[in-house]
Amino acid sequence: MTRTQVHEHCKLKRYIWELPVRWCHWINVFSIVTLTATGAFIAHPFSVAHSASDFAMGWVRFLHFAIGYLFTVSVVSRMIWLLIGNRYAGWREYFPMLTARGRAKLRDMFRYYLFMSHQVPETIGHNPLAATAYFLVFCIYIVMILTGFAMYAQHAPGGLMHRSLGFMYALFNTPTLHLLHHSLPWLLLGFVINHVYSAWLMDIKEHGAEISSIFSGYKFTLKKEDE
């Protein structure tokens, strides 16, 4: 009985986010911020050069491409980790609607967000609502990477990258590639606002160290996932 009493009042430290998950998260943050900044300059450059020998746009584009590669490596690594990581990193986490239990958690979280319930739901891994959004965010990442490299590969038509991305040119004409690559970051910006807000909200409401967990990997939860 003593144990149960402890459970009611003490939270347990739990290792949730493994090192690769945290690395990928922060590399993605860095990449998205720098890619957005350099991308904004590429889309709306202002005349900064004093001579034709300057290389302002050249360097900005170089950064954009180099960090684009970094971001791609990060996203691909995270996708591999979907298969080999722990249960909180696994791909099932992103489809809570596939199981009855997940749907119930999703409903509870939805009710809480719409002020229909004042009971803060306990989340141990991903917030089911957030995880659903992350799936869409992953899709945006993939479209961004594919459209980005499809445009990039046009500097060397017939090259390996250009040929591998042949399906992209069959699906979209070049102006559409540019428009997609230019528009989708706005959705990501909307997501970032939501993401930071929700992390802040749940940190306050849940008392589970939501924000510090993405630095340390540890969350504080009342019960185990299976209990």
Binding site: F115, H118, G190, N194, K205, E206, K223
Partner: peptide, 22 residues
């Protein structure tokens, strides 16, 4: 999005919610 979450946050700040299991 920012406006929607600002309003949401303001309501959440007023709400007295129950922490999980506590």
């Amino acid at each position: 999005t920012a406006a929607a979450f600002a309003v949401h946050g303001a309501i959440m700040a007023i709400n007295k919610d129950r922490e999980p299991g506590d």
